[in-house]
Design a protein around this nucleic acid. Structure first.
Lengths: 156, 156
DNA sequence: CTGGATCCGGGACGATACTG
DNA sequence: CAGTATCGTCCCGGATCCAG
């Protein structure tokens, strides 16, 4: 609890207000967290944490991102003011991306989450194995169709 | 930097290893963060932070989640060992969900992120307005098609 | 080199109806 | 009350081609 509770309370308050209203979603936390949650944003922030980098450097650093998504992610982050974009009119053109102060302020919160993820991954995977292995009472169902990273299960 | 840097470094190392290998994704952080990033998980964790709750209580608390997604989210969280599920064989049946110790250990990291999101939302929205308002030099393009929460823009 | 435009598949997600 | 099954939709995101 401790520091968590107050933040959670505010978040819940937002959430319930949101449920009451007719607007689709006003909760500021929700929409910021959506950005965090998307597939590449965190990677970008992380990669830019050490130093500002160019488009192709970022592409090499992440590698399994397509140019399309790289462009889109960077633009969204720029739009949100988390990174800044600097164009040098050389030939060929080079564009440098760097974290804004706002973006840097995200590093610490994100780091604490990453530390948690890293430390808990073992326990989580163990829990998954346990869950998938012993569906308690429904041998055929349940375990088969978990959406992500799920073993296809040897039931079929 | 400070506490962030080391976590980031490890994360980057995972990421680059991942890029080298042929496996789709082994990075433990990535797949844990995927869960965090999905649309409802955080909401559930948050809602369960105050006290354990039953299925329909959770449904009322969040409201704009479908039963389908509520079930699925809860099951995934249970699978990951973040929450536990307790069935009371009453009539009608009642099922209670509560945070596991592992789930509670996530509260603090998540809270720090929420605090950041809350404090930064103003600045972010301002940045968005600025970005959407002044595409710098390409009046027609760019700003129109940001994927989320984007104003459709009165350009069309 | 740094992107933009377009096509397209798959998965997430909602709505609805049904069960025990 | 607490789910399950099925269908349909939307949009994320990859692949590819094009442009400055």
């Amino acid at each position: 609890m401790s520091t968590a509770s107050s933040a959670i309370e505010r978040f819940s308050r937002y959430q319930s207000e949101d449920a009451q209203s007719e607007q689709p979603v006003c909760c500021p936390v929700r929409d910021v967290l959506d950005r965090i949650g998307d597939k590449w944003s965190i990677l970008m922030i992380m990669t830019l944490a050490s130093r500002s980098q160019r488009f192709s450097e970022l592409h090499r650093a992440v590698r399994d991102i397509s140019k399309r998504m790289l462009t889109q992610t960077l633009r969204d982050l720029e739009r949100d003011g988390l990174i800044t974009r600097h164009v040098y009119p050389t030939t060929p053109p080079s564009v440098e991306y760097r974290l804004s102060p706002l973006g840097r302020s995200l590093l610490d919160p994100m780091a604490s989450l990453i530390v948690w993820a890293d430390r808990s991954s073992g326990e989580i995977h163990a829990a998954r194995a346990r869950f998938d292995g012993s569906p308690t009472d429904v041998p055929q169902s349940r375990a088969v169709k978990t959406r992500k990273t799920g073993v296809p299960a040897a039931t079929g």
